[in-house]
Write a protein that binds this DNA or RNA. Sequence first.
DNA 1: GCCGTTTTCGGCCCGACTGTTTTCAGTCG
Length: 575
Amino acid sequence: MNNKKIAELFNEIADMLELSKEKRIFEIRAYRKAALTLESMQEDVSDILEKKGIDGLMDIQGIGKGLAEKIKEFVSTGKIKKYVELKKKYPIDFSNLTRIQGMGAKRAFVLYTELGVKNIEDLKIMVKNHKVRELKGFGERSEREIENGLALLESSKGRLLLGTALPEAESILKRLKASGLVEKAELAGSTRRMKETVGDLDILVTSNKPQAVMAYVKTIPEAESVIAQGPTKTTLWLKIGMSCDIRVVPLESFGAAMQYFIGSKDHNVKVRQIAIKKGYKLNEYGLFDTNGKIIANENEAEIYKKLEMQYPEPEMRENRGEIELAQEGKLPKLVSLENIIGDLHVHSKHSDGLNTIEEMVIEAHKLGRKYIGFTDHSKTEYIAHGMDEKRFAEYSNEIDLLNEKFSGKIQILKSAETDILKDGTLDFSNESLEKMDYVLASVHTNINMPKDEMTKRIITAIESGYVNILGHPTDRIINQRPPINLDLDKVFQAAKDNNVIMEIDSYPDRLDLNDENILKAKEYSLKFSISTDSHRTQHLFLMRYGIGTAKRGWLKKDDIINTYPIEKLLNTFKK
DNA sequence: GCCGTTTTCGGCCCGACTGTTTTCAGTCG
């Protein structure tokens, strides 16, 4: 993946430019913005170059001729000349040093010129020998902060999964609401936008006792230490290994604060630009006219309205075109958790699930599901106790019996998560496949195949005439395993031609397809199934993560097959 | 270095918190 490396280089170039005498702050900002964009992009820049050339790069928001050429230079030579030149002057490991809280390029440079610190290891030694506190602009306090930062860096695991962050945030919110000190407490930031990974938590509260709130938040059991605290904002370090900002705002500016703190940064910059064009000023306290008079502040939707825009749901706020749609009044009405009436990817004890089919069915019924499809593994998944044809027949009989038992309450569908084998064939006999209500097919083995072969393998399965849903299509595991090598355009086209549905696997470390790939799949007018990939009853609740991802991919109710009544659903599966 | 309904020049979001340089630069989001 070139994107991450180039992003790192761009950030370092920005760091080094910050040190030059002439203040090229907008050039610096351009590098940082491009780095941010590259980091969150799914498609590798080398693929873009290959397909569309340098123009393809320049189509990316925030990347113009200069940066596109630098990207191209990196892809073809592995280097960026400008970076190499600057690095001669500043032989400092900025990208790691600036990961320390409170350490930017300028402080890192002082450490280099005064103490010769080039990297984290050097810094550790200087901190240990108490050399840092002697520097001008640093003190004992700063040295201690750096020491803490170094320790933190070693213990932190980077961005946490949404599935870890969201429950933590909800537990803190619940505590704040129960404290009696706040009127409103809401989640903001990337967690509110349901981003698949989260760097820190942002919580917003309104209170007429901000001091008391600040005193209280230090004492919550989730907190390990206090990183910073002022009269209206506290930054905590949480035991789970991430920081959490808690801000107090007055009730009357709550809407403006929510708009600001939900982000994303890119979205906000653009919204503020729109405000400026209309002669307004927007900040976290409100929307103001030229005389400083408040136009809107208490209600978030009101702010968008005054800017002549529709209200975009938080999941869409990534500056990926939602602002323009909101201005035109053309935002889609996004799917919601309430629209979901079935789950089409569920495991039981018949393979690697923890619960029986009946236990899963009872839980799904409690959740209000109208149907549940079982998709235990096929025989190739021997570690997962996958089923052969004989065991599939037993499983099939059990489902028939349970359908009689639960008749009128919830319908149980018969399927299997059929492995797509190395050559693209399916891991069940056609006879067994024909007995299923639908076929979910996934790749689990030989995941390191070259792109052409992997694409061919999946398309072969799609064209078999048996597959209805392609399970976790890219097979990535967030923070652990990259996506398989696939030409998604070809796969999506084949899926379109063969009426195959794309899965959005809600399991928090999968979220596959992800938001960007969903947006791409939507261009092919594909349909989607949001499923939980449950392996125990508790997993049936994970649906909300898939919904969040679907909303980030701008999906509407009608795009999702498990919002359909059962008759319509079964029709969708007809070949 | 990017970008365009102020369009090829001249703008580019805005404020909080910290430490320490007592009036502000650096950092962060």
